[in-house]
Amino acid sequence: MMDLAPYLLLAGLEGLVMASVLMLTALGLSLVFGVMRVVNVAHGEFYMLGAVGAWACAQFVPGHPALAFCVALVVAPLLVGMLAYLADWAILKRINYDPEGTIVSTIGMLYIIQQLTLMSFGPDARAVDAPFYYTIRTPWFGYSSYKLFTVVMALVLVAGLWVMLKRSKWGLVMRATQFDRETAQNFGIPVNRVYSIVFAIGAMLAAIGGVLVVPNQQAHYLMGGDPLLLSFVVVIVGGLGSIPGTIAAAILIGMSDGLLSVFFSPTAAKIFSTLLVAFVLVFKPEGLFGRSNRV
């Protein structure tokens, strides 16, 4: 068996990879809830569509896999974003973003997206080539360099999102809408369009997570379940709608999952995260990091 130090290193790396993808998907969920007060149960399906989109790009873009990967990183989230925009216009807007109604209708969206994918993409798990292959060798184990690349990508994207929310005009508009919908409307902010765009951005974040993860995991029509559950865990622990809380909780859940599942078992890790949710809901329902509803 390995010594403690390399063991810890491997567990840390696994946790880091998990935390970074989780950060993207959970941020999407959190953003949508924060601004729109919509609990999007179909969020995991946007993640799955991102992965399936990456597979489709790999089929249609000839040449080096890196090329297809770069195309997928742009095209797949854009298409998923458009689909989400459309879904918002066709469904969520019609029911006035009624909290119960949106939960039920996004459950419906979940099944529709899943079954359409099953009917078109098929029931198989399909592999997508990584943009590059290089295994980092330590004296004790090897580790995929692509996995570390996903960490870097996730960090860059989250930083980008942060800057967008804090510095751009669009970020200001979103934060205003989140803070007080009526007042924002009175100041001439087109709240309905903001909603559509936020829903699309949330879906795109999930889709990017799917594109990043698919060279490690393969695309499959049922792959949206786990990330949805974990995103909910992260968002509840971090505080619904709180972006810094979501980031912190993603790191906490991801790292603890990595460490616990390497040192004990993946089942123990799941027990821990579910227990954490239960305790947070009982003792600090606003989330570990949820101070206010501001971004």
């Binding site: 068996m1 491997l10 567990a11 184990f141 580790y143 490690n216 786990d226 993946p266 089942t267």
Partner: peptide
Amino acid sequence: IPPTETTFTRYMPRIPF
């Protein structure tokens, strides 16, 4: 390993040298 598992690296350290 649960048959629905999607990532496996975390199980590998349990392979004795």
